[in-house]
Nucleic acid binder design. Structure first.
Lengths: 133, 133
DNA sequence: TTTACTTTTGCAGCATTGTTGCATTTGTTG
DNA sequence: CAACAAATGCAACAATGCTGCAAAAGTAAA
């Protein structure tokens, strides 16, 4: 599905900034940060515009935000695979790669009495294939 | 174990700021933010001092940092329960409570070929006992 | 295609948080 | 208590989050 189709499906105006971000995330395949986006598409857009565009795309569900650390935030396209309430991501300690993983196989410990759960965020830290070579 | 003992065991100088933070975390039982610390112990210490004290205590392993979101960071005392490689925390969407949970029962999905894992961070979001009443 | 309207963008500006260097103060050890 | 090592407070700067407002861009209808 093209960026245009995705935006239209979510009733969002098709702007060049939104298209660039969606295209970049599609091409990348992995999660990327605002900084990395800028390195790829250039200094085309204002800081505020990028900030608001990410916000809009997250709120519409087109992309999702992965907070590895308070100083490291990345974004990835949402797919059927990542749509569930259980988000699983891999972070490479060596190269900083962030990837979405299917939530299948994840078993959450039981909560104390009276607690209820809406969703979970799991980050698995380690070394990726490339860095293990 | 008293704050004094904890600091001594980790070869750290016993300063009033470090003691206050450890005491506050001990009393609280749950994870708290820098902001909450200030509300409890007052505006006694400089922002930088709190920042560096948290850093020192994290690096020594006395406390650990829980990043709920890039704008919400809390700290909790490390205990034998939370010492493992698998950190599990609960976040209440309603009141902001953050609690450490034992990692027992957590089963991580299998990683793709070539990937290795060092540690995991799981945040379970939902509603706590109080907010469910 | 042009017009009128709605939404987004860029800019300015402010708040919060992360981080460092350096002089002063505090804690530790003999 | 003296001497030394370490922590603290202050100043300062960077990065990020966030908002208001005028200008620009996108959309839909004539």
């Amino acid at each position: 599905m093209t960026a245009k189709d995705i935006l239209h499906k979510h009733n969002l105006i098709r702007t060049s900034c939104r298209q660039s971000i969606i295209d970049t995330l599609t091409d990348a395949g992995v999660a990327i940060s605002e900084e990395e986006i800028k390195q790829i598409i250039g200094d085309t857009y204002d800081r505020t515009t990028l900030y608001r565009t990410f916000k809009t795309l997250v709120e519409s569900g087109i992309i999702h935000k992965i907070v590895v650390d308070n100083q490291l935030v990345k974004y990835a396209l949402s797919t059927s695979k990542t749509d569930s309430e259980n988000h699983v991501h891999f972070y490479c300690n060596n190269c900083g790669l962030v990837e979405c993983l299917p939530g299948a196989g994840l078993i959450i410990p039981e909560l104390p009495d009276g607690y209820t759960q809406t969703n979970t965020e799991l980050i698995i830290k380690g070394n990726c294939k490339n860095c293990n070579r």
